[in-house]
Design a protein around this nucleic acid. Structure first.
Lengths: 234, 234
DNA sequence: CGACGATTTGACTCTACTCAATGTGTGTGG
DNA sequence: CCACACACATTGAGTAGAGTCAAATCGTCG
């Protein structure tokens, strides 16, 4: 039997428009494809990278989802990101040549492995790739600063509403339903990320459901009134 | 009379180690220097860049300090960054080719203006410059995600202590005293940045002073017990 | 089927906010 | 150089939103 993953290439990956290949021509995509390794699937709870480990690869998410977190001086986990297909993991480590956070799978996930040195060489020759790398990093800078503003000066309800809206937008970009989706992270993860307690997350999801804005069934979320939810996020 | 600023070059700039020229050799620095314009000094309250304006230049701070902020849908200012000498402003705009935030001087400040297109061309030819650009962007990604973790799940006192410690570290990197410094931003700015009210900032600075950890005299801060302050930031 | 982790709900507490009043500094114009 | 005005900062009192603690229920994976 042939390797089932052997036919996966940037050229036919549905996430290409969000990922490194964005705006590359056929030849550029083919060149990028040659340096990329397909990583074996990782299982729920598996740790992809450890904070402090040397940064040899960036990883692009092909399917599934992951969370990144740091461990602070008190040994407390602090989630800094959730990764969906098309996201590139590891940019925060480039400055020190080592990973700055842990990244753990929230479900079985498939990844592409991109060697940094080969990527640098390719970026030298391909202005389009260089621009996309800048674009991705710049976007990450903006969204994390934006998030800062979203969390500061906002109530618990606004934060949760913002979280749900942002997830919906991200799913939509990925060709998935922005109306209903599955949360692969726990309530505790969401609370940690938003700076709220588990109980508060649970209560607010219940309230939003009672008000008819969303339907929640365990991990499944359905957004009944997208506009109202968006207003609540302000 | 000759232009007083004409003798300022990357080669003799004291901020070179923090800025774009880091780890470039003499020749590389000279090449970088040719594309950089010295911007005329900007005065307190002047706005350097407006959100939405096309991104033509990055700016490096040579002296002084600035704040960056967005205006949210409710017209409320949200400060996302304070810039000190050596910092590069504008990375968050690369993804959309326009500035994503406003940047305003907190005091009279001197800036270097770096044309993006020329920088891209130079980065193509100079691997060291490319690496430093990656390093700076990556560092910004890390610190803003780190800050997220610092603000979430932390009390007002921890946030303020963290803010003071971080400023001290940044002044130290810049060859200035990490023991005493002047806050160029108002208490309201600090509160906005940390997600706290002006009153809370004021009260906490008073408390820290009463406990003998710091001395505050208006804008002047002296850190009496750096270790204790650092502990309080945890 | 059983055990453990995740989630929900309730009761009480406390931190940081708001509102209000007063004090302090800075800068401008006469 | 001084006086006045305005922005900035401090301090106090009362309040509310989110945290903590506790207990019950639900789901999932051996």
């Amino acid at each position: 039997m042939t390797n089932m993953t052997s036919h996966i290439h940037c050229q036919n990956c549905s996430m290409a428009a969000l990922c490194l290949p964005y705006q590359l021509d056929q030849e550029g995509m083919a060149r990028l494809d040659t340096i990329i390794q397909r990583h074996k699937p990782i299982q729920k709870r598996d740790i992809l990278v450890h904070a402090g480990a040397p940064l040899k690869f960036l990883y692009a998410v092909r399917s599934g989802s992951l969370k990144s977190y740091t461990i602070d001086d008190n040994g407390v986990e602090q989630i800094i990101d959730f990764h969906l297909p098309g996201d590139v993991i590891g940019f925060d480590g480039l400055s020190e040549n080592e990973h700055r956070s842990y990244t753990q799978a929230l479900e079985t996930s498939m990844l592409c492995e991109i060697p940094i040195t080969a990527l640098d060489e390719l970026a030298e020759q391909m202005p389009g790739l260089r621009r996309q790398l800048w674009r991705l990093m710049s976007g990450e800078i903006f969204t994390s600063k934006q998030l800062l503003g979203t969390l500061n000066n906002r109530t618990a309800q606004q934060r949760v509403a913002h979280f749900l809206v942002t997830l919906a937008e991200r799913f939509k970009e990925r060709g998935l339903s922005s109306r209903s989706y599955r949360l692969t992270m726990t309530r505790a993860d969401i609370g940690n990320y938003l700076g709220l307690s588990v109980e508060t997350i649970s209560r607010i999801l219940s309230n939003l459901q009672q008000e008819g804005v969303i339907e929640v069934q365990n991990k499944l979320v359905e957004i009944i009134e997208p506009l109202r939810l968006r207003e609540m996020a302000q």
